[in-house]
Simulated assay, not measured.
Amino acid sequence: MEMENDNSFTQQTARPKYDCLLFDLDDTLYPLNSGLALATHQNIKDYMVEKLGIEPSKTDEMTNLLYSNYGTTLAGLRAIGYDFDYEEYYSFVHGKLPYENLKPDPVLRNLLLSLPYRKLIFTNSDKVHTIKALERLGLEDCFEGITCFETLNPIHKGTVYDDEENKGSMATDPTPKTALKCSEIFDIIQHFSQPNPTAVLPRTPVICKPSEHAIELALKIANINPKRTLFFEDSVRNIQAGKRVGLHTVLVGKFQKVKGADYAMESIHNLRKTVPELWETEITAQVIACPET
């Protein structure tokens, strides 16, 4: 009996698990103990006092409430009624940071360059700060692109309505507002001092993490598929928001995973140990038919 000839063979093809690695910047690509976060927080409070006329005794509580409810203090300040120039704000807040504390990081540089994936930055910070920090770390050429504050938010120079007729559009004010009248500001401290706050918090015009809309918009702009992207963040709530939109997630700066984190590592330098599959490939089998001879 003649056996039937099987004119086919199996070919193995390698396919990476991920297409893209998406990195936060501050306290992710460099450690929290660099001192930049502490200095940024102080500079924000100084800006609130010097430029917005907020009482110094209120800045600690206000920054905590605004940050926890809006993602960033800037987003919260805009939500509750303060109008100011974004560029001026970031120039003040980041202009006096101790960038000298950031040193070239050849270990991280080599790790990043050894990974054959798209690599991008996604930060709530402004572009000037992002580029300066990456240059200090020696990582400026390790990333394909940067999605930062300006990517998701048009530059805001301070706006006023010209009149009732033009109330639907915003007109540029050549002399941006600083402190507004108290009656125009939503008192967020008073709001949360009530046992059962009834008023709804005002919405912010600023688009930033941890808003799912902000993350989805950043992914769309960079043409990223969340299901094939690994997202590195030091913020638990940003990690959880990223997970909700379909990203794979790595919590940086923590020993233990939290809800929403697929991985956790104390330092970005632990990348190879924590996510070894980045240097591996997923093998898939494909049956190829052979022509008869």
Rank of each mutant, 00 (worst) to 15 (best):
Y18W: 13
E87T: 13
E165Y: 06
Y263R: 06
S183K: 15
T40Q: 13
V245E: 04
F231A: 11
L102T: 09
E61F: 01
D173E: 03
V49Q: 11
G53D: 07
G53M: 07
D187V: 02
T281L: 13
K273D: 15
P205E: 02
K17E: 12
L74H: 13
G260W: 07
L219R: 06
Q11W: 11
L217K: 15
E100I: 02
D6K: 13
P154S: 09
G158K: 03
Q190R: 14
N238D: 11
P116D: 05
S183T: 13
D234N: 14
L36E: 02
L36A: 07
L38E: 15
Y89H: 03
K273E: 15
K58D: 14
T63S: 14
L111T: 06
A261W: 07
D6Y: 06
R244C: 05
T59Y: 10
K254D: 08
E140H: 10
H94A: 01
E150T: 06
N270W: 02
I185H: 01
P176T: 04
P174Y: 12
Q256E: 14
S193A: 09
L65M: 12
D27P: 01
E100T: 05
F186R: 05
D141I: 04
E165C: 01
Y86D: 15
V160K: 12
M1P: 05
G246S: 03
P226H: 06
T274N: 12
Y117A: 09
P98C: 07
N153G: 09
K51S: 12
V258K: 14
H269W: 12
L112S: 12
F186K: 06
D26L: 04
L66G: 00
I185F: 02
I224R: 07
G260E: 08
V93P: 08
I189P: 02
T293M: 03
P154D: 11
S125E: 15
L152G: 02
I155L: 10
E280C: 03
L36Q: 07
N5S: 10
Y47P: 04
S91R: 15
T147V: 14
I121A: 04
D60S: 12
I54A: 05
I131Y: 08
M48Y: 09
T28D: 01
G81V: 02
E282Q: 10
K257M: 14
P104L: 07
I239L: 01
A133N: 02
L217Q: 15
T72W: 02
T73Y: 00
K181I: 00
V275Q: 01
K157R: 03
R203F: 04
E140Q: 13
E212Q: 15
L112F: 11
E135G: 08
L21A: 10
T123C: 05
I224Q: 04
K119D: 08
I121N: 07
